[in-house]
Design a protein around this nucleic acid. Structure first.
Length: 290
DNA sequence: GCGTCCAGGTCTACC
DNA sequence: GGTAGACCTGGACGC
């Protein structure tokens, strides 16, 4: 893997509880362990291929807790996923060989599917700045802390316990408030088990269908949540990525979504990942947009 | 300072 | 199955 390729794989690294510490070259976040212990972790990397995790907590951590921290961080960084098949495919296309050379492909995700879905709903139909505000308010008002400083992402029951008015006015979620509330309530009450989706044997189409049944999750959100579940069959098109595609392939001229989909169909189950990496390649050569 | 537009879309009603 | 219209918010932009 390449640590910084994972950190900057998309905008999640700047959405709380994630924090990027550019000067000291690290990614930090508060995580909540199974027994409720709150830990602030800082991940750094020597030469991009070896990780160091520094965890702070109010009490001494047991061996099991240290092991759980490693698990959660490894899960976020997708360290246990096998990309050899993917790299074989990109190596057959000269213009995509840079992907395996750069060890790209691992997309940063949250410790929980719940957090990824809430955040994805917060990216819909708004600017990135507003997404940051909504997530900051959720974490700041409902997250847990051990030192009064940095906070964890709120648990489903914590969000489910708030009113629609709170989510609209305090979190600034606007019309998304009832969607967020309904989803948090379903997860908190056990009506849906989204955490099982990361290890599910269900076909991608079925997972897509289940994601679409969550109010507020449309085609764009479902396609991109699937990428964080390790399924890359959908492109997850939005206005930003469309305009980037028009710029790259059609000199800025608009084309239909079907035209975009046709170009990547040949890459089968990896098409969504190849598409995303190609659209964001310039971030690593110039400047990150977040 | 104010109005308009639109951004990393989605839902519902209606045809 | 396809599509128009409504929906929160904040920042950019024109005047």
């Amino acid at each position: 893997f390449n640590f910084w390729r994972i950190v900057y794989s998309h905008g999640w690294c700047v959405l709380l509880p994630f924090r990027v510490d550019k000067d000291k070259m690290g990614l930090s976040r508060v995580i909540r362990l199974n027994n409720g212990t709150i830990v602030d972790c800082k991940i750094t990397s020597d030469k991009n291929t070896r990780l160091n995790i520094c965890a702070r907590s109010t009490k001494e951590l047991s061996k099991n807790q240290i092991s759980e921290i490693k698990d959660q961080i490894g899960n976020c960084l997708r360290l246990r996923e096998n990309f050899s098949d993917f790299y074989n495919i990109v190596n057959t296309t000269p213009k995509y060989r840079w992907i395996s050379k750069a060890k790209s492909g691992r997309l940063l995700r949250a410790p929980s599917v719940f957090e990824d879905i809430i955040k994805m709903i917060c990216t819909t139909n708004c600017s990135w700045a507003l997404t940051e505000i909504m997530v900051e308010n959720l974490v700041g008002d409902l997250g847990e802390t051990f030192d009064g400083n940095y906070r964890s992402f709120p648990l489903p029951e914590k969000i489910a316990g708030k009113s629609e008015k709170f989510l609209r006015k305090r979190v600034r979620a606007g019309y998304r408030a009832p969607f967020i509330l309904e989803f948090a309530d379903k997860v908190a009450s056990g009506k849906i088990d989204v955490e099982s989706w990361r290890s599910s044997d269900l076909p991608t189409e079925e997972l897509y269908r289940q994601l679409r049944s969550i109010k507020g999750v449309g085609n764009y959100a479902a396609g991109n949540i699937l990428k964080l579940l390790g399924r890359y069959d959908y492109l997850g098109l939005d206005s930003w990525v469309r305009s980037r595609y028009y710029e790259l392939y059609h000199n800025g001229r608009q084309v239909s979504d079907k035209t975009i989909e046709r170009r990547y169909a040949q890459y089968g189950k990896w098409r969504g990942l190849i598409f995303w990496l190609e659209m964001t390649k310039h971030w690593f050569e110039h400047k990150f947009p977040f």
